[in-house]
Amino acid sequence: MNIFRLTGDLSHLLAILILLWKIWKTRSCSGISGRSQILFATVYTARYLDLFTNFVSVYNSVMKIIFIAAAFATLYLIYVKFKATYDRNHDTFRIEFLLAPCALLALILNHEFTILEVLWTFSIYLESVAILPQLFLVSKTGEAETITSHYLFALGSYRALYLLNWIYRYYFEGFFDLIAIVAGIVQTVLYCDFFYLYITRVIKGRALKLPA
């Protein structure tokens, strides 16, 4: 555990909590892509099945359980409790176009052809693109609430911090996992455009509106 990994995890946790808090506090999930949240719930479920087979540490298990529970709680808020506020007309990204290629790629490019390992690989690939429905929704409406942009910033920063963690681990531990690194780079690159808008607008106290 190094500082990049820890801040990455905390940033990830913060993102998830910001989203839950935003929906709960405003009693509304408008501007939030339910489809991205379905993908994230799929990611955590596929990746953390090793909770049942392999114990790493209390920290590891607790975080996994929080991520899974928060993902399903978010889905419940969007699709059940605050269903009336869900932006379904704008949330139209076809997630099967992400799910199918990730599943296929996981079957072909993995560390080992076992069920858990293929599911882990699938979750890594899927996570890298899971934000696309959300970014699509923001681009379609042309704006995002400030709290939603904080959520996106924290969520995007998490994988960027993991990239620094992997550079650190490569130099100091000789560790590297090519699948995670390549997917992590893809994931971070997808946020770059958003990071630029966040820094140039939201930090300066303006709303995140996309340039026309």
């Binding site: 995890d9 090793d50 392999n54 590891n60 080992e112 076992t114 993991y162 963690n165 560790f175």
Partner: peptide
């Protein structure tokens, strides 16, 4: 080795 039994990252 980065197989499932060695994965400590989240």
């Amino acid at each position: 080795q980065t197989l499932i039994e060695n994965k400590d990252e989240l």
